[in-house]
Amino acid sequence: VKKAFKTPRLTSIEHEIEEIVIDKVAMINSEQVMFTISRDGYFKRVSMRSYGASKEDMTGLKEGDHLVGYG
């Protein structure tokens, strides 16, 4: 490996890690979304980007069900 990659390593290898802290709020993507709910209680959240690019049948409702709300 040293012959193939002559550049010195830029990272260090740690044998022990004291604690890994992950900010869960920072991992949530901040975006505008559309929510839909059907008569049978089917609830769906989709990004506005996907919603705008899709056809009206994007909600994937089962036969006989229909949307009762969105926002």
Rank of each mutant, 00 (worst) to 15 (best):
residue 23 D to L: 02
residue 28 I to Q: 07
residue 54 S to G: 11
residue 62 K to H: 11
residue 60 G to M: 09
residue 60 G to R: 05
residue 26 A to S: 15
residue 18 E to D: 13
residue 20 I to H: 02
residue 62 K to M: 13
residue 19 E to S: 12
residue 5 F to W: 04
residue 65 D to S: 00
residue 14 E to W: 07
residue 58 M to G: 01
residue 46 V to F: 09
residue 20 I to V: 15
residue 29 N to D: 05
residue 2 K to V: 10
residue 42 Y to C: 03
residue 15 H to K: 13
residue 40 D to S: 15
residue 42 Y to H: 14
residue 24 K to T: 11
residue 7 T to F: 15
residue 2 K to G: 06
residue 38 S to R: 00
residue 64 G to R: 03
residue 4 A to N: 09
residue 8 P to E: 11
residue 37 I to S: 01
residue 33 V to L: 08
residue 30 S to Y: 07
residue 59 T to S: 04
residue 23 D to R: 00
residue 11 T to W: 09
residue 3 K to I: 07
residue 46 V to S: 15
residue 6 K to P: 13
residue 34 M to D: 05
residue 69 G to T: 00
residue 12 S to H: 11
residue 62 K to S: 11
residue 70 Y to I: 03
residue 2 K to R: 10
residue 17 I to E: 15
residue 60 G to K: 04
residue 57 D to W: 02
residue 67 L to M: 09
residue 32 Q to V: 06
residue 61 L to H: 00
residue 16 E to P: 01
residue 12 S to T: 15
residue 3 K to P: 05
residue 10 L to G: 03
residue 12 S to L: 12
residue 60 G to Y: 03
residue 68 V to W: 01
residue 8 P to C: 04
residue 39 R to Q: 13
residue 59 T to I: 06
residue 12 S to M: 11
residue 4 A to E: 09
residue 51 Y to A: 14
residue 21 V to Y: 06
residue 48 M to R: 12
residue 59 T to P: 01
residue 50 S to I: 07
residue 23 D to Q: 01
residue 24 K to I: 08
residue 47 S to E: 03
residue 40 D to H: 09
residue 35 F to H: 13
residue 53 A to F: 05
residue 29 N to G: 03
residue 24 K to V: 11
residue 21 V to Q: 06
residue 10 L to P: 01
residue 23 D to V: 00
residue 65 D to V: 04
residue 43 F to D: 01
residue 45 R to L: 09
residue 10 L to N: 07
residue 11 T to F: 12
residue 28 I to V: 11
residue 40 D to C: 08
residue 20 I to W: 04
residue 27 M to Q: 11
residue 70 Y to W: 15
residue 29 N to H: 05
residue 39 R to A: 12
residue 53 A to V: 02
residue 55 K to H: 11
residue 51 Y to K: 01
residue 51 Y to N: 03
residue 38 S to W: 02
residue 66 H to C: 09
residue 15 H to A: 10
residue 6 K to F: 05
residue 26 A to N: 02
residue 25 V to W: 04
residue 40 D to Q: 12
residue 36 T to I: 14
residue 45 R to S: 09
residue 54 S to K: 05
residue 13 I to W: 09
residue 18 E to V: 14
residue 38 S to V: 05
residue 18 E to P: 01
residue 58 M to Q: 08
residue 29 N to P: 02
residue 68 V to R: 00
residue 21 V to D: 02
residue 37 I to T: 04
residue 64 G to V: 04
residue 8 P to I: 05
residue 62 K to A: 11
residue 5 F to A: 09
residue 15 H to S: 13
residue 49 R to D: 14
residue 21 V to A: 06
residue 9 R to V: 14
residue 58 M to C: 12
residue 15 H to M: 11
residue 44 K to L: 12
residue 33 V to Q: 02
residue 4 A to S: 08
residue 35 F to Y: 15
residue 63 E to Y: 07
residue 7 T to H: 15
residue 60 G to S: 06
residue 63 E to R: 08
residue 9 R to T: 14
residue 29 N to M: 04
residue 7 T to Y: 13
residue 40 D to A: 13
residue 37 I to P: 00
residue 62 K to Y: 07
residue 37 I to L: 11
residue 58 M to H: 11
residue 32 Q to W: 06
residue 53 A to R: 09
residue 52 G to Y: 06
residue 6 K to A: 12
residue 30 S to C: 07
residue 69 G to K: 00
residue 57 D to V: 05
residue 47 S to Q: 02
